[in-house]
Simulated assay, not measured.
Amino acid sequence: MEVFYYVVFGALAAIVAGLELGKSGKDRVATTSAFNSFKNNYVLVYSLMMSGDWLQGPYVYYLYSQYGFDKGDIGRLFIAGFGSSMLFGTIVGSLADKQGRKRACITYCISYILSCITKHSPEYRVLMIGRILGGIATSLLFSAFESWLVAEHNKRGFDPQWLSITFSKAIFLGNGLIAIVSGLFANLLAENLGFGPVAPFDAAACFLAIGMAVIMSSWSENYGDPSDSKDLMAQFKVAAKAIASGML
């Protein structure tokens, strides 16, 4: 049933993204071969990263239940993941700007691969570590890649209007078609081929490893503007105040 929901959600996302893509199709502009190569490279990497994320979704709860944990234990695992993402998300942007967006994207791959590996263990503490790593990875997924794209697009001198082309392609594939295919592929591995609920996580790790190899071999590093650099603790305090005010 969870796989069904993922497929339906992915189908709806694909329809919405396709409609948005169709709108921009009327106003297509001429682009260069250098931009098209850059765009296709990013879309490939983003699709691989998203497939690594989408493959895991339908079987996280099911895997924990198969290990014999009750709803309370599973709930705490999920809270740890969301909490890790919330806390790390307040500083991930600053860290990526200072240490490099490419490094941040590679860190996403490593963190999520390690999180996938922990799914082979029925030990609660190991699974908790995996959830924390997964939360860190989620923060990086929805910040570092887009930051790298925007900075690299501008650094290479491409037309600013072309940026929307890359985003629309990435969203259509990564959050639309990939979501559908990943849900079906995860179900094929776990149910039809009988590899069990850990198989989708192994497949996710493989896709992430492939994506990391592409990043390491074809992406250049970029950083944030040093003039906008602020003390990390100061930024963390500002982020903590923003979170606290949003909860009131």
Rank of each mutant, 00 (worst) to 15 (best):
M247R: 10
M247L: 14
A179E: 04
V16K: 13
I106Y: 05
M49R: 12
A104E: 03
A137W: 07
A186V: 08
A239M: 08
N187D: 14
M49N: 14
E152M: 14
L208S: 02
A34C: 14
V181K: 05
T31N: 07
D27A: 09
F145D: 09
L140V: 05
I136T: 01
Q161S: 14
F82P: 11
F201E: 07
E123A: 05
F9G: 10
L193D: 02
L55S: 00
L141P: 10
R76K: 13
V7F: 13
G196R: 10
V60G: 02
Y124H: 02
G89Q: 10
K230E: 09
L232C: 10
M49A: 14
F158R: 07
G130A: 04
D159C: 05
T32I: 01
M212E: 02
G81R: 04
D97R: 05
H153W: 00
T32N: 09
A17M: 04
I243S: 04
A234E: 11
I117C: 07
F9Y: 12
Q99S: 15
K23Q: 13
S94L: 09
W219D: 03
E20F: 06
T118M: 07
K102T: 04
G211H: 04
L77H: 00
N36S: 10
N187H: 14
D27S: 11
Q56H: 08
A190P: 01
F4T: 08
Y112C: 08
T90S: 11
N175Y: 13
R125S: 15
T166G: 02
I165K: 03
E146R: 11
G89F: 06
A203R: 04
V214G: 08
V43E: 01
D53C: 14
K98W: 06
D70Q: 02
S51D: 06
L95M: 13
N40A: 09
D228Q: 14
L184I: 13
I165M: 06
V45D: 00
A213E: 10
D202Y: 02
T107G: 07
F236E: 03
W54I: 05
M233L: 15
L141Y: 08
G176Q: 09
F78A: 01
A240F: 11
F35P: 12
I110R: 13
A151P: 06
Y67C: 01
A213N: 12
D159A: 04
D70L: 00
N222R: 09
V214I: 12
L12F: 03
R28S: 08
W162C: 00
S85E: 11
A244D: 11
S85M: 15
V45P: 03
L87I: 02
S220M: 07
C206F: 15
M247N: 08
A242P: 04
I106S: 09
K98G: 08
L55R: 01
Y108T: 03
S121L: 12
K23S: 13
V198T: 01
E221Y: 11
I79E: 04
D231M: 10
I117L: 15
C105L: 15
V198W: 02
I132F: 00
I106P: 13
L95Y: 06
D202C: 06
S47H: 01
R125Q: 14
